[in-house]
Design a protein around this nucleic acid. Structure first.
Length: 271
DNA sequence: AGGGTGACCTGTCGGC
DNA sequence: TGCCGACAGGTCACCC
């Protein structure tokens, strides 16, 4: 479910409301991808100071330490003063003085991990190799170009890998490549500076537009207040195999790259 | 060091 | 209707 826009929309939907809240209790359901790394009860009494985002991670800054929250493929967060009783897929629940926070994640590829700080090895292992943030000044065109230059694999797979630029997942990689006129199979190292500039711009605009649209709700994504997104209505190629390109009417094609689907227009997107 | 592959887990959908 | 395989928004450990 969640790529950068969905994570950012989630963050925006509860960050202000949870800021300053004191933790009253923490309960874990079935195991998530990684263990919490601390006793749940040890978090009680701490305060949630702020909620930040790095790549696809939510970072809850506590009065002491931090919680890294990843939504995996199927995770979603809820935050409300009253929530219905926990269901089978609710695997992390935190009562606070300002409401209840809950992570629902059927596939359990998500995680909630405690770290003492960002230099804690636990945090470094998850955050240490992440690439540039696409929606900030951190996303430098020259660094992007040089990052792509040293990669032999396809541009689509380099985008997904997240060590050059973060946050671009399977939907937005296909979309950004469409908007920049680049085939997903094109070798990353072969992109000229001019084409890299177009891709750089497309990544920024597609992600920013998706945040404005509340993210993409393909099956079940919703933000922490239960609102779904509607960027799926603006999608040009993702999930549209066999349909007509919105620009040139050619038939959108689907291929597999690294066991993931890619979508592109064979006419609008050149190798 | 980079690239390719399997693994993690549950739900849904299409085809027979 | 039922069963079975394919696939789904992510990313890590493991092999060359």
């Amino acid at each position: 479910m969640p790529e950068l826009p969905e994570v950012e929309v989630t963050r925006l939907s509860f960050a202000d409301r949870i800021a300053g809240a004191r933790i009253l209790s923490v309960d874990m359901g079935k195991p998530l991808r990684w263990p919490l790394q601390c006793l749940p009860s040890s978090l009680v009494g701490r305060t949630v100071v702020a909620v930040r985002r790095r790549g696809k991670y939510l970072i809850l800054d506590l009065s002491e330490g931090l919680l890294l929250v990843h939504l995996g493929m199927s995770g979603s967060v809820s935050f409300a003063s009253h929530l219905p009783p926990a269901g089978v897929h609710d695997h992390f629940a935190m009562r606070t003085s300002q409401g209840q926070l809950r992570l629902n994640d059927p596939r359990r590829f998500g995680a909630v991990v405690y770290a003492r700080g960002e230099d804690d090895p636990v945090a470094q292992k998850l955050l240490g190799k992440l690439g540039m943030e696409p929606l900030t000044d951190d996303f430098d065109l020259r660094l992007f170009h040089s990052g792509l230059k040293r990669r032999k694999s396809s541009i689509k797979q380099v985008l997904l890998a997240g060590d050059v630029v973060v946050g671009v997942g399977n939907i937005y990689a296909s979309e950004a490549l469409f908007h920049s006129g680049i085939r997903p199979t094109t070798r990353a190292s072969s992109l000229s500076l001019a084409r890299t500039r177009r891709l750089h711009q497309a990544i920024r605009s597609v992600l920013a537009q998706a945040v404005l649209a509340g993210g993409s709700t393909l099956r079940d994504f919703s933000d922490a207040q239960g609102a779904g997104g509607h960027f799926q209505l603006e999608v040009m190629v993702y999930g549209r195999a066999g349909q007509g390109c919105g620009v040139c009417k050619s038939t959108i094609r689907a291929i597999r790259q690294g066991q993931r689907s890619s979508f592109f227009c064979p006419v609008c997107q050149k190798a």
